[in-house]
Amino acid sequence: MKEIIQRLKQQFTISNVNQQRVDLTFLSVKKEQAVSLISYLRDFEKFSHLVFLTAVDRVEDIQFQLTYMLHNYNTHQDLGIRVLIDREKAEMASIHHLWKQAGTYQRELKEMFGIDFPGSPRVDESFILEGWDNIPPMRRDFDTKKYSEETYFPRPGRESHDPESYMKSKLYPEGDA
């Protein structure tokens, strides 16, 4: 793995290399270099399998972190490529030409996080959420609890007590010894 990282460093600006396990490494690359890095890994380093592509909402940094997980079947190494993109103008180059299933991942990311992949097939078609009119639900600022309270009706009749304050009301109400 070290040699691969060395070779990558010659061509790409990579950072935050973290060997999580003997067979799992993460590294970060700039958005502009990501697709060429991934193509290079696929075509020249035998990382032929796209395990998954997903996003993490780093809302506090106004960024999305995309993670492309690649696998090399010869050395049985997993390599996670992190790419940080702007959260306000979330857009990323598509990799659907490299793997057929990448289009599905990108379609889901568009729907769930609102990250656009221009040129990706059917990227604008709804994938899971038909008729959704709220913000993309996997974003951190989408509050599921609030949404469900506003959208559905809780059945009446439930009430709960906190043992601490309940005991206070029973045993030593304000000012009582």
Binding site: T54, M69, Y105
Partner: peptide
């Protein structure tokens, strides 16, 4: 994130 094999099998 849950990676299931059907993700690619059942769609693409």
């Amino acid at each position: 994130y849950v990676r299931g094999p059907s993700y690619s099998h059942a769609v693409a």
